[in-house]
């Protein structure tokens, strides 16, 4: 028997089904609250699914030597849905989302089951990831630190401090994703800062191994990470669609934060169920 943590085999078709299930779960939760970042969660659903269900290795007891930190904290609904699926969060935790007796809010809180850091203010995550990766290296442990950044977050100066740090320190145990949905609160990211694109060039220039993928293609996401060259931190620029999976949410900025009405909920559910068949 080999007790080393192992990588799950990754079945892309199963991943697609899981992601539909997660989107439905998030849609359910959306009916309990006035607002949640549904578009932001749908945008990175396949990425976060791939990290938890395809990339993070599992020990015999279900724990992982690897770490996931949600740098774009506002996308945490997908993290919650997955943690519930993995049995880390309970149904009751989810039912009490954003309620006075609950533990889960619109941003991840350190100390909650499965949550490795408090985020919500953008530009904090990647430096914490660098610190975690340095701790793994200092202790000669093999943990990989995974994170998801938003494309708006990449405008934070502190993100670039950390981008520089990760490559200067040669932290090949970092795997980061940019959820490049080309939207931020006030409109298109590429209109706010046209010269910021293409993003891939910037990360290459800062010394990262960088790859661009379709961020809604589970197999492509998985392949991008497992086929990496290594020796450098890895940045996966994932091209995504904000609100992916529900036609009227896709690329419509209001769904950054709004909860669907009853009718809108019904329509979204129909679309997700049709996709499942």
């Amino acid at each position: 028997m080999n007790d080393a943590p192992r990588l799950n085999s990754f079945d892309a078709a199963a991943a697609r089904q899981r992601c539909l299930r997660y989107r439905k779960r998030i849609l359910d939760i959306s009916q309990q609250v006035q607002a949640l970042h549904i578009g932001s969660a749908y945008s990175c659903t396949e990425i976060v699914d791939c990290v938890y269900n395809g990339l993070m290795r599992r020990n015999g007891d279900g724990s992982s030597p690897d770490t996931f930190l949600m740098s774009k904290g506002h996308g945490c609904m997908i993290q919650y849905a997955i943690l519930e699926d993995l049995g880390v969060l309970t149904r009751q935790d989810m039912d009490l989302y954003c309620k006075p007796n609950g533990i889960l809010g619109c941003h991840p809180d350190y100390g909650n089951p499965g949550i490795e850091a408090s985020t919500g203010s953008l530009g904090h995550g990647l430096s914490m990831v660098v610190g975690m990766a340095l701790a793994e290296r200092g202790r000669r442990t093999s943990g990989v630190i995974y994170t998801v950044l938003s494309d708006g977050e990449v405008q934070e100066g502190s993100t670039w401090e950390a981008v520089l740090m990760a490559s200067s320190f040669g932290l090949s145990n970092i795997v980061a994703f940019v959820d490049y949905n080309n939207f931020q609160s006030l409109g298109r990211t590429s209109e706010t800062h046209p010269s910021f694109f293409p993003l891939v060039d910037k990360f290459v220039a800062f010394g990262w191994e960088t790859v661009e993928v379709d961020g809604h293609d589970p197999a492509a996401i998985h392949d991008a990470v497992v086929s990496r060259k290594g020796g450098k931190p890895l940045m996966v620029v994932a091209n995504t669609t904000k609100g992916k999976g529900v036609s009227y949410m896709e690329n419509v900025p209001i769904w950054h934060y709004r909860s669907p009405s009853k009718d809108e909920y019904k329509k979204a559910l129909e679309e997700l169920e049709a996709a499942q068949r």
Partner: peptide, 11 residues
């Protein structure tokens, strides 16, 4: 941030 990350890992 790096100091926080180290501390999150028990350092």
């Amino acid at each position: 941030g790096i100091s926080a990350g180290l501390a999150l890992k028990g350092c």
